[in-house]
């Protein structure tokens, strides 16, 4: 089967000598919901920039549904929709004009562009704002506007670069539902995000990029299987002055009523609760300190990067 996106040995060195991509290769299958993760400056946006032609590659190849971007970029662009990280529409144009214009750039007759504009503005809850200048929209509305604009030509491959950054939880979840819906309808989606919960909830496959190289490329399920430890926050009924000393578990006191406990792979939570109960501590509720993907992600980051973060 022809990959929705195939990237081979992609390299990018900027004019100042910075090597943003050091020969990355990965493929995304049709219908997939794929996460491209990495810390800031890892090369995610450069990769997306090259795919959509805003960044010129130094070497390597990109093909979209088998269409090589070097040979027939025009055909490849028709298959691709991009939602960039930064707002990149004219702030002074009306919402509906932005979509109609984008349709025109893809050669869509005005009647069809008008129908699609109505369809996507309604689906993304912006129809009431169709006559409003873009600059008057809230941040969340602007993000949805960019998604609607990227879909106007109904691309087979949609790339979203941190689409939910700065969006409140309710809106973020409604955007997830929308993306899941269009993915179920056959659109292949590639997502970069800093919300790892988002990637874990939505995506089936993942590539992690760090310092311009792919450090992991697998399914989310397989990746999570490699998770060796999870950290939980436990709310307790007892007033705690110090952390209980547990033989099998690493335990830290967070405040007078909560503990942070690390559970290694193979250890059971039942054993943890029994050990705590033996010390007179009853757990009333518990939650993950971070989501599972976040634990893995942090463990994969280079030591140098972690040291930098700690500083």
């Amino acid at each position: 089967m022809t990959a929705a996106l195939s990237i081979q040995n992609l390299q990018k060195t900027y004019e100042n000598g910075f090597q943003a991509l050091k020969g990355i290769s990965f493929a995304v299958q049709p219908g997939d919901f794929f996460a491209l993760l990495g810390p800031n400056g890892a090369g995610k946006s450069t990769t997306i920039g090259i795919i959509c032609s805003l960044v010129r590659k130094t070497a390597g190849s990109v093909s979209i549904f088998g269409v090589d971007t070097d040979r027939n970029f025009s055909a490849a662009k028709r298959l691709l929709g991009v939602v960039p990280q930064e707002f990149n529409f004219s702030q002074f144009e009306k919402v509906s004009d932005i979509l109609m214009t984008q349709g025109g750039f893809y050669g869509m007759p005005r009647k069809l562009a008008g129908e699609r504009t109505e369809k996507y503005l309604k689906q993304l809850g912006l129809w009431d704002k169709r006559a409003t200048q873009a600059r008057m929209l809230s941040g969340g509305m602007k993000r949805r506007l960019m998604i609607a604009r990227a879909l106007i030509h109904e691309p087979k491959l949609l790339i979203l670069d941190e689409p939910t950054a700065g969006v409140d939880i309710e809106l973020r979840r409604s955007m997830w539902r929308f993306l899941e819906k269009i993915n179920a309808q056959g659109t292949t989606i590639i997502l970069t995000t800093h919300y790892l919960e988002e990637a874990e909830s939505l995506c089936r496959n993942i590539a992690i990029i760090d310092k311009g190289i792919i450090v992991e490329n697998t399914s989310i399920k397989s990746l999570l299987k490699t998770l060796n430890r999870e950290t939980f926050i436990l709310d307790c009924n007892a007033y705690l002055t110090k952390a209980p000393v547990l033989m099998e578990f690493e335990c830290r006191l967070l405040d007078s009523h909560s503990l942070e406990v690390t559970v290694e792979k193979g250890q059971s939570l039942t054993e943890l609760f029994i050990a705590l109960k033996a010390q007179g501590v009853t757990v009333t509720s518990m939650r993950n300190r971070a989501n599972r993907l976040e634990e893995l992600f942090l463990s994969m980051l280079s030591e140098e990067k972690m040291e930098g973060l700690e500083q």
Partner: peptide
């Protein structure tokens, strides 16, 4: 230049328009 400044020129650059 305004299209460059607001980055709305990217709408055109990522499209198939020659």
């Amino acid at each position: 230049y305004s299209a460059k400044f607001q980055r709305s020129v990217e709408e055109l650059l990522v499209s198939p328009t020659p």
